[in-house]
Design a protein around this nucleic acid. Sequence first.
DNA 1: GAGCACTGC
Length: 721
Amino acid sequence: MSQFWKPGTERPRILDDEEGGVLFYSAPPAASSSSAFGYASIEKQRQRLPVYKYRTAILYLVESHSTSIIVGETGSGKTTQIPQFAFSLLLPIANLILLEEMRILRTIMSGSLLEFSTSKKQVGQMVGALLLALNQDDWLFSLFGSCTGIAVMYSLSSSDAQTVASRVAEEMGVKLGQEVGYTIRFEDFTNENLSALAAQSVTRIKFLTDGVLLREMMDDPLLSKYSVIMVDEAHERSISTDILLGLLKKIQRRRPELRLIISSATIEAKSMANFFQNSKRRRGVESEGHGMKVEPAILSVEGRGFNVQMFYVEEPVPDYLQAAVSTVLSINEQEPTGDILVFLTGQDDIDTAVQLLTEEAQKNGKPFSDLMVLPLYSGLSRGDQDLVFSLTPRGKRKVVISTNIAETSLTLEGVVYVVDSGFSKQRFYNPITDIENLVVTPISKASARQRAGRAGRVRPGKCYRLYTEEFYLNEMAADGIPEMQRSNLVSCVIQLKALGIDNILGFDWPSSPSPESMVRALEVLYSLGVVDDDAKLTSPAGFQVAEIPLDPMISKMILASNELGCSEEIITIAAILSVQSIWVSVRGRKELDEAKLRFAAAEGDHVTFLNIYRGFIQSDKSPKWCHKNFINYQAMKKVIEVREQLRRIAQRLGIALKSSGSDTQVVRKAVTAGFFANACRLEAYSHSGMYKTVRSSQEVYIHPSSVLFRFGRCNVVPSET
DNA sequence: GAGCACTGC
């Protein structure tokens, strides 16, 4: 069986890192063990992963610390292996725990964060002791005694959760959806039916997205089904990650037996440790009773990437786009084969660079004709994105020009050279004007390292940084600003409210958002009537809005459509608003504009969306129809999915599905009921089409992507009703 | 005349 440390044998050593505070574990490589699950070649692959030789160490840390922070670079194998390690701790319980006990335990553990009482905790310990008695040989099992023992890991994107889950299922030789499963927005591929326990096929390792885990907390605030929770890629610091980290810290106080594994990049590890350290001081004596270390453990696992040689420019470059293009050309001239990945900021830059390089290639003949230049950003159609993953033809060199989608979300094989502009587009939020902006901003050191690492996946690579070494060392921020501090917090605040966290300003965040943003979010929620004078969720509107997995302004619009009798239309609009864009991105704008005109409605974009949706349905959801009309087929498919989900939720909330037919006025009233906070007035005598917001007289203009941009500048925001 | 990247029972 597993090789974790037991009392009486030599204890693994934990060493202080010289750089201060970070603990490294020095472990002799584990002797290769025979696999319990066939698949020899897969087992060999597993053993080659750097994280594999830390197996004993990781098991030891997870047993003896309530929080373990694993610092692992890309390619270390932490995402697929650590859940399996944790699983081996849970396995014996799986065989012993009885159905009836599980049912009791669920009841015991499902109290809310606020209502959890001592007596319940005592029962939990009692059952824990019972399990311990069943396992006299192994003291470790008491640690997990009061749970059903499902290890969880949460992953950043839904496609990650899917691919990682199926990989892990394969490695363990089990069927996906049984012992190993995943849950993402539209797919629940798990088996949590307790009667499946007898058949041993109940899901014990579940991969899910942050959003799903947050939703699960609304029914089960203590996440009582899980005995180990692993938060993967915590350094990315998305809003959901930060909310989760704050909540998990709270849960730890109520469930000292819960084990957290946080996977993070090096630079963030210490601040993460500090965050979890603080909570335990307050907990004090209580945690000692469980025989666990109070301070979080940090373990560092090396990545499997190859060495990447760095190059910097000697002088700052005046134009990173030009610099990127000429760097690509000189790599192509001077360096041996290997694909090139260029990081720029956005679609505009990327299309320009692609055009420049393609022209250059045609102008110069060989060796430039061997270049295969491809753009990569999320707005591309599926087909165009797939080109990037196609094999590079023999004798060709692929040049992928990308946004930071290639930094974390997508991995390209075969890249040997990285050209890093040093910039990315980031969202910034101004709570005073209540406006979110995308701004080209210098990246952080953490991002720069991540980008460079992309060059070392297949063999030693080279990274060309279009900024000076001095800038990197002295001026670049170590980490990016957490999303929480750059965003509108309306959705975030209502989620916390729904979880029973009323003191938003006093919440223990990994990094606090500005009080202005939080106050602004509360203001909006108050004006929507979803929180009351005491900032508590109203009933039923507040609870209903929290139930709908959309921006509260959109949710309010859906509620309003019920009384106005246009819910069919409004859920269509809500579904379209929740996808990125239903238009394909085209370089030549003329055809796109003409296509838009075919659907454009004088009433504005929302009614235009309805026209498009109806057209799509009438075409029998035809991809051809989409292509003809410059509409993104993948996006429309998602609209159908989201709409179906919203329809179900609406029905559950008692919203009658009703169409207003050709009456668009009620539709506009419903839109206004949700979005009145954005109302603005056309300035009299303004020739530039300037509007001012009703709330704060902020200058605003119609966005060029709006149908109203071309249709003349009529004031389309209906007066409040 | 313009859209970094994700997510949601």
